[in-house]
Simulated assay, not measured.
Amino acid sequence: MESFGSFRRKFAPWSDPAAKPFISFENVTKKFADTTVVDDLSLNIFHREFFALLGASGSGKSTLLRMLAGFEEPTSGRIKLDGQDLTGIPPYKRPVNMMFQSYALFPHMSVEANIAFGLKQDGMAKSEIDDRVAEMLKLVKLEKFAKRKPHQLSGGQRQRVALARAVAKRPKVLLLDEPLGALDKKLREQTQFELMDLQYKLGLTFIIVTHDQEEAMTMADRIAIMDAGQIMQVATPAEVYEAPKSKFIADFIGNVNLIEGEVVKSANGMAEIHAEKLGLTISTETRENLSAGQKVWYAVRPEKTRIEREKPLDGSINAVEGELWDIAYFGDMTVFHVRLDNGFTIKASSMNAVRKTDDPFAFDDRVWVSFDTDAGLVLTA
């Protein structure tokens, strides 16, 4: 059997023009009274894809999920699943299942009874139900807890029971609405990898709604970033982070220094951008077709910068001097806020690759922040 890692590296049906989408949202709009929650949205999702809908509260991501589940109907447009138009099909007849943040387990039922509930409702034979429940318990590693009630389980165990119940009916698509929000950070990170492994083993299409960027970046094959009912970008986690389409995306995903500037000149894949707030003309590589005098934004991630006590000797490196204003130690990395003499603050970070308890920098130190010509990205919108 092909390994999970090998499968994830090769899996990219969205790059194949001949690949047929498994789920299609075609010009879907959803209005509640005079409020447009989803606005003329089109999106394709492929079979066996782990897809994330990421956005702030009110962006429309949960409404999109609920329309796919059948709990809401589009005001206009249509949704297709495996070639079937879902218009007018009630939730219980759709080949999808949804797992909610609250888990919604029956408190008076045992673990195995909770998992078996939907199968009994479908009229499955008892012997088949017993086999399926045993299979699900093994899959989520809860065989020893089959007779327990939900209140006798930890939060992570209840989450796995809800997951087992959701996939026991073999839906074509599993919808996850903020499924890990009730878990603590360490357990949430562990469960993310368990979900990825489970999705691969079952060969199902998973769609997760989340506002947690790290969660989406960790689990998803692709991410759709939503804002005000529209999709701002659909791409792999690496593409969203390293090649955002706009300053909105760059600012939304991770930490970034967004610096407004004006193009001085641009030729042969290089540009010079005057950034007044830095007091510097940035030299950068770019694929954008830029014109002198054009307003742009330069985006550089803190980890793509360096922080040093002395000015870099290489004159081609972009460098600014300032005062170390804030230091945040996260264990694996340290983030520095450097305030320039004009009051503008730039963020830098460094990995703590060597074990130590003291820091080479202190508050109020004069330092230099530098970055190479290929460190950042020029954004025109």
Rank of each mutant, 00 (worst) to 15 (best):
F363C: 01
S154A: 04
V264I: 15
A235N: 10
V300G: 01
L280A: 08
E143N: 10
A182I: 06
N257R: 12
G60W: 06
I225K: 02
Q294W: 04
M109R: 10
S349Q: 14
P171N: 09
I115D: 09
K80Y: 06
Y241F: 15
R132Q: 13
M1L: 01
P360G: 07
P312R: 11
R48I: 03
F330V: 00
A69C: 08
E276P: 03
L313V: 14
I207P: 11
N114Q: 06
R301D: 05
I23E: 03
A319K: 11
K61Y: 09
Y103W: 01
V209L: 06
V209G: 09
A12N: 13
L340G: 13
D34R: 12
K144H: 08
L198W: 13
M333W: 10
S62G: 08
L139E: 01
Q84W: 01
A164Q: 11
V264F: 00
M109T: 02
N114D: 00
L377W: 06
T305K: 07
A56D: 02
A235H: 01
R366K: 15
K10M: 14
N27I: 02
I231N: 05
N342H: 06
V234L: 01
K311Y: 07
E272V: 01
M270C: 04
R78Y: 05
A292T: 15
M1Q: 04
S59N: 09
L290G: 14
M226W: 00
G5Q: 14
A125K: 15
L180C: 07
F4V: 03
R309A: 07
P17H: 10
P90L: 08
N268C: 00
M109V: 00
G70H: 11
E310V: 12
F363K: 15
A267D: 12
R132V: 03
G60D: 04
